[in-house]
Design a protein around this nucleic acid. Structure first.
Lengths: 336, 336
DNA sequence: CTGTTAGCGCCTTCAC
DNA sequence: GTGAAGGCGCTAACAG
């Protein structure tokens, strides 16, 4: 419709220079009240809107924080985003989100896209990319959930190995000896750590690790469901299942319910919707997305506020919440 | 560290003008292969990164699509975002997300913030704001889930009234006469429509609408859970509950499970995680976020591609998926 | 308290 | 096929 109203237009209408109009827009106190009023009136009258692009170009940075997660659809990450947004927005920044879908090969491309936009900072869920290209960057970047390859940087993560370790111990304490593992693909470091925790705990508890009990590569709930069904059909099905992600746990639960096998004990690393409402309710190791978001924001703000020391690793606790499914006794050896 | 490498630097290193370097960066075919190679080498050598801010300022628009939802934490909306991102990104646009939390009063502010960034387009979940201020805007905006107040625009929504209508009919068909409603707050149009569908269906079925059976204002799962518990404690508890949102349904399910009242029939408008795994599995009216996202993207692309006709309203179907909970018979009149 | 000048980095226009 | 000039809208730097 009408051409965009510029600051110059406002200045002209108010009878001042562009710079003075700019001062008013930006809340500079060094402006006479009368002048300020005149400019504000002009802004109102003309319906002026700042051009953020021009402003950011001039300032050299854009008031936007980039957030890269594995998938915005994953409730874990959408919760992380929600928490980040809630903490970041009040500081006057906008949030730009991108999913770095597993295996898309676009990891570096996405990060560079954000760099090209002169963002003030980024919070990144790294995948397998070589992050050494970020070494000479000035923009603060906080990594979450995993460590970036070839870069020493601020990271916020959970004690993954400790989580599965505790999961196995918990189940063993209730008498389980045949504990299956439903795990994501091992190309993600987080997953590897959880896998190791499982192996170590099994070893320490003196339990045999039966390869048929270890199901790696369950990328989503559907795959986890299939593997669980398969486990149930083994001649000697497991009496307990440890699932390493909220999403895969949903698949496990679905399988157990559909096959009337809810007497199989379950521990899930990662809470999920209705985990407390199925029967029995699911015992979880609460790998909290809210906490990860909170600490990541904290780290980012510290860097934005000028903190300049060595990279810091923040490890969040992963408390066990017993709800029933993880406290079931081993079921009778033979079953359907 | 080192000052940012500019196009001019690249041009200098390659021994060409800035414009020629620009041509290479933007894939203009009108460049001699030898020149192109030289520029590309310079880009590589200097590690040049475009300054998107400068480019967008010059071009007059930024290749970003803004998406405003009610809350990124709500699985319904995170699914919408996921679908949008998947469709929008391949077109070379980035996605900027913002939550317009209920009652934050920041609705117009958020939309204007996006306008100030010269985005190419927006997809907006309107709340109660007066959207007449968007009348003279040139940027295409597609509204989802609800109609904007005081603006005739492209909208993608579900047949909300029809959904609850069918929900009630379905339950009545199975013999229910005492059907409670767990509903969100009525200040959202979508919710009002669903509420009306409930009332109309009850009337048409000749069923009395008991005010104590109608629980309005359940903003989240927790509030829905409380109201459900309250319903269960009525002298004459309902034999069926119709919940108008996936999130509130989770609260309903939790309450029923915790109070051993899973013999109360349930129909949920909106699917949710594990709805098919609880016992009984939850019958839903599938208000699909994926479809909403898909049609919204379609509408936006059409406008971006120059379509200029009248605003279009796209209504998505809301099919009923019977899973068990909606097909339960009315339970015995007296209960705990 | 206010204005002038200059330029952020890029691309459009038009010339050659 | 290539280049020179100018400006997108804004704000730093420096006057006054």
């Amino acid at each position: 419709m009408n051409k965009m109203v510029t600051l110059a237009d406002v200045a002209r209408a108010a009878g001042v220079s562009a710079k003075t109009a700019s001062r008013v827009i930006n809340g500079d106190p060094q402006v006479a009240p009368a002048t300020r009023a005149r400019v504000e009136a002009a802004v109102e009258a003309l319906g002026y809107q700042v051009n953020v692009l021009a402003r950011s170009l001039r300032r050299g940075h854009d008031n936007v924080v980039g957030v890269i997660v594995e998938s915005v659809r994953d409730p874990f990450f959408s919760e992380v985003i929600g928490e980040l947004e809630q903490l970041i927005t009040p500081r006057g920044f906008t949030v730009m989100v991108a999913s770095n879908t597993r295996g898309s090969g676009r990891e570096r491309e996405i990060v560079e896209g954000f760099i090209q936009r002169s963002l003030v900072g980024m919070i990144v869920t790294p995948q397998d990319a070589d992050y050494s290209f970020l070494r000479s960057i000035r923009m603060p970047v906080v990594f979450i959930d995993r460590r970036p390859r070839n870069l020493d940087a601020d990271v916020v993560l959970a004690d993954d190995r400790g989580a599965t370790l505790e999961g196995v111990n918990h189940l063993a304490r209730y008498g389980h000896r045949s504990i299956a593992l439903i795990s994501d693909a091992l190309d993600v470091q987080t997953v590897r750590n959880r896998y190791e925790g499982y192996l170590d705990a099994m070893r320490e508890a003196g339990l045999p690790v039966d390869p048929s009990m270890v199901r790696i590569g369950c990328l989503d709930a559907d795959m986890a469901e299939k593997e669980t069904v398969d486990l149930l059909h083994l001649p000697q099905p497991p009496t307990a299942i440890l699932s390493t992600r909220g999403e895969t746990s949903q698949g496990v639960v679905r399988a157990l319910h559909r096959h009337d096998a809810t007497d199989v004990a379950v521990v899930s690393v990662g809470d999920f919707a209705l985990a407390d409402s199925v029967t029995p309710a699911i015992t979880v190791l609460d790998h909290s997305p809210t906490l990860i978001g909170r600490y990541a924001a904290e780290r980012l703000f510290a860097r934005l506020d000028g903190e300049s020391g060595h990279p810091i690793t923040t490890t969040i606790p992963v408390p066990l919440i017993a709800r029933g499914s993880g406290e079931l006794p081993p079921r009778a050896a033979v079953s359907g």
